[in-house]
Design a protein around this nucleic acid. Structure first.
Lengths: 300, 300
DNA sequence: TACTTTCGTTGCGTCCAGCGCAACAAAGGT
DNA sequence: ACCTTTGTTGCGCTGGACGCAACGAAAGTA
């Protein structure tokens, strides 16, 4: 009964993920020859070909796909084992991988992670920031334990742990030329330059849907996934952006910008959601964090 | 995300199985210092104590028990992966473990394994020979993939893949003093010396049941599980033995002995069965062999 | 109580398995 | 036709892992 050498399997996984042995070598800080040899050794141990090789790089064979799946399951099982150890020892330790829309980041740190880290100093985090699509993908592919996103589409693979209606508001510089000092009508919005997120973001998708439904087009001067850029757009009085209120709590408090509501007839309420993969057993640390994330502004 | 080094885990498993590091070292052909270091390294990687150490040796901690369980599951998953590889590649390779009553051995080789091995030269076999009880145990404890036995009792753990009614016949030397040249009555059988298998054999159990029911006792001069011995008993004209016909096909063809039928009123038909453990997923090679075994004389 | 035996551990020296480097052949791109 | 990038292989180097020896601790025995 043979067993698998972690150095060999990590070379294999990296190679099929990167697409070439040389890219894998770079990722692993090894030489291509090392990666090549380790994969060959693994193929010998398992007596099967794991990758197709060529000038265009490598691709997993069907057997390779089986091994990827096996290793993924094994990693999950090892995570579980580790968290069982942690639970057993009464220690709260581990790493939690979070994928979040950038809009959540301020809220996440201000209203959750700061206090949590104080209580559990041995728990670490991996935070990746991206679109609603990215968050969804990270959660379903088990690269992230938890996801924070806006307007997550319903999918059987994802369990919405908690969510909250979060209407979009129009954000402009207080007292600037775009500040009409009253709720925005669609005409108001259409008349001024806007900065919006792309469609892969929950907000961007919603804006696109409203444009289609209302037969109107916003003057999207800037389209970006960067919340900082959207904020900077407003801060510099270049026009208006449309975001959920919780994204800019601190800027509103500081009086840098004002939020004007938009009638529900134009923009129905969106949802901010805390998600996890359905059926995935989370390590202890992630389960602990789950409870704390409910105190975020996004969910109140 | 750490992973487990097979050298470390094998030292750990051996130590908890053997009870001392020194015994494990001996088993693994290593030095005690090596085993000690490997276990310590594993504990460091997992950040938990896996064994309690003392003058009386080592014992797994609760965390250690979790790891043992994990490694066992991993080994099972790896076996399955390997057989998936085999199936995928269309390669006919692997080892099939068979447990059989000795009576099946001739039939097994003559009518199944010879042709099968020609067609699949890379498939190997482990054959253990024993009683019906032994066969049953080997199959249910997954030491054997397939079992060949006579009069297998019904049990939910066992699936009978194929079976066939196989009446017992009286076997005597052709033309010898015990050859009455007509079917045996119970009195005939009781009057001559017999060689019979023990009760743990399907045949032996059946004989015992008939003795009880008919209120008669055979002169069991020899009781043995060795089919060769039973045949030799007849070949030397020492008396009669009682077996299913397929056990002695070649001897009958060669004219060395004759088979006289026994009325069903005395011995109801027995069953020869090909069995496997219910719910166990068989490797590809065993599944292939399964089909071929149906052509044995025992099942026609 | 004193001595013996067996346990796991640690210091130290040795060595070879696995690495990096360089060069190569093959295949796709320009 | 030439260039670039791919994966592979020969060869030399080295440090990680091993064996050996000795140690301290704990249980067994006389």
């Amino acid at each position: 009964m043979q067993s698998l050498d972690p150095r060999q399997t990590s070379c294999f996984l990296s190679a099929v993920q990167c697409g070439t042995l040389r890219a894998a070598a770079e990722q692993l800080a090894l030489e291509p020859s090392t990666v090549s040899r380790n994969i060959s050794a693994l193929e010998k141990v398992l007596a099967t070909t794991l990758v197709e090789r060529g000038r265009l790089g490598v691709r997993a064979t069907e057997a390779g796909e089986l091994l990827i799946s096996f290793l993924s399951q094994q990693e999950g099982a090892l995570d579980l084992l580790q968290s069982e150890f942690d639970a057993l020892a009464g220690m709260k330790r581990g790493n939690v991988a979070i994928a979040a829309g950038e809009g959540f980041v301020g809220d996440l740190f201000d209203n959750a992670l700061a206090a949590f880290s104080l209580a559990y100093p041995d728990i670490t985090f991996s935070l990746s920031v991206g679109s609603t699509e990215d968050v969804l993908h990270q959660v379903t592919s088990e690269q992230a334990h938890l996801g924070l996103a806006y307007n997550v589409p319903k999918t059987p693979q994802v369990r919405v742990q908690t969510s909250c209606a979060q209407p979009l508001v129009g954000l402009v510089k207080r007292g600037g030329p775009y500040d009409t000092e009253q709720p925005f009508s669609l005409d108001d919005l259409a008349a001024m330059p806007c900065a919006v997120p792309p469609k892969s973001f929950g907000i961007g998708a919603m804006i696109t849907a409203v444009e289609a439904k209302q037969g109107v087009r916003l003057r999207a001067v800037i389209e970006t996934g960067s919340i900082s850029a959207l904020k900077a757009f407003v801060r510099n009085d270049m026009g208006c952006t449309i975001l959920p209120r919780f994204v800019v709590e601190s800027e509103l408090s500081a009086g840098l910008m004002v939020a004007r509501s938009i009638p529900r007839a134009i923009f129905p309420d969106g949802q901010s959601s805390l998600i996890r993969k359905e059926g995935r057993k989370l390590p202890q640390a992630a389960q602990l964090l789950l409870k704390h994330l409910k105190s975020m502004s996004a969910f109140t």
